[in-house]
Design a protein around this nucleic acid. Structure first.
Lengths: 175, 175
DNA sequence: CATGCTTTCCCATGATATCCCATATAGGAG
DNA sequence: CTCCTATATGGGATATCATGGGAAAGCATG
């Protein structure tokens, strides 16, 4: 089942804190790489991404079913602690905490690398993004996405079109 | 009959009070897993949850009949101290403290793991959440919830809708 | 004490995940 | 041009986890 555009706001909530900055020590996810899923459901995380994910506590990655697209979102494990801390500002049993946690933390998995820097894709997650043989890893700065190569081609064209048509630009950071 | 709706009102009255973090050393409850209840009423606690529950004093979990939903809430034993501390912000014998304590602490059981990391679901608790064959374990950070898979599907959609409709976001942690 | 009932422990199994080794390929360094 | 290292990929061997069932250990009842 493919998530609809109307879910975009959920994602905004999830990513809302990026506008206030995120842990600075993390590396940036850059560029796009296509890797292969083997018979056991394993994929190599692109080398550069592994460095960006580097966490001194846990060698792995957080995957989330994207609330916006038919893809998976990848984060550094440290991100989850930050999200949890933000959630803890709400009262226990409050509907805000419950709703936000359900829309974010519940949709994630924490996956460790094997000795070769690969992860095993949980079937449920692979199915969600339609991942079969090849996966396009797309670096987007503070996170990355995992797409089927063909779906990524579409999405990429769509994003470029949006930037052109709407004249989107990157404003200077306010001091 | 499940007293969910009526209890919701009690809680709404006091939502504002439960504030701020929980013991930071605990692991986070992440992701959603479905496990099976066997003929003896046993369920495996998902492996990652067991690590998050890890307590050097007691190998087990605290289950609570949710004061707000038709589900069970699961906590690390250490979290009970946190809840007690929150309750102690109210005056002794105040109706707020009495009501909240009755709706939370009084509705808990402490359950130990068996040698395989399973717990036996008390019949009363299983019935409260309508748990029969399969249980969805939902990680929500400082706690997790146990739902029937179908009830969770509904709740999940509801939470996403709430986030969307109310425009909920995760505010930056205040210093 | 015997009898049932429940709880706990222990082992077996299949599925999955993880480790370890082997190979291939691409850059870099010398 | 060749060696060396990091990465990507494949596959066999193990270890771990979820699950089911039997056996032993409480525990109340008559």
């Amino acid at each position: 089942m493919i998530p609809v555009v109307s879910n975009r706001l959920i994602f905004k909530a999830f990513l809302g804190f990026f506008f206030f900055g995120f842990p600075r020590h993390m590396g940036l996810f850059l560029s796009t790489t296509v890797n292969r899923i083997d018979a056991k459901g394993r994929v190599s995380i692109p080398g550069p991404f592994r460095s960006a994910l580097a966490d001194h506590v846990f060698a792995g990655v957080i995957l989330m079913k994207s609330p916006v697209h038919a893809c998976l979102e990848g984060f550094a494990p440290a991100m989850m602690d930050d999200i949890a801390a933000r959630l803890n500002q709400f009262a226990l049993f409050s509907s805000e905490q419950d709703d936000l946690a359900a829309a974010t933390l519940a949709e994630c998995v924490k996956i460790g690398f094997d000795t070769e820097g690969r992860i095993v894709l949980p079937g449920e997650f692979a199915k969600y993004a339609g991942l079969k043989d090849d996966v396009a890893f797309v670096g987007l700065g503070n996170k990355f996405q995992m797409w089927t190569p063909s779906a990524w081609d579409k999405r990429r064209a769509e994003a470029q079109k949006a930037v052109r048509d709407k004249g989107l630009t990157l404003p200077k950071v306010a001091e």
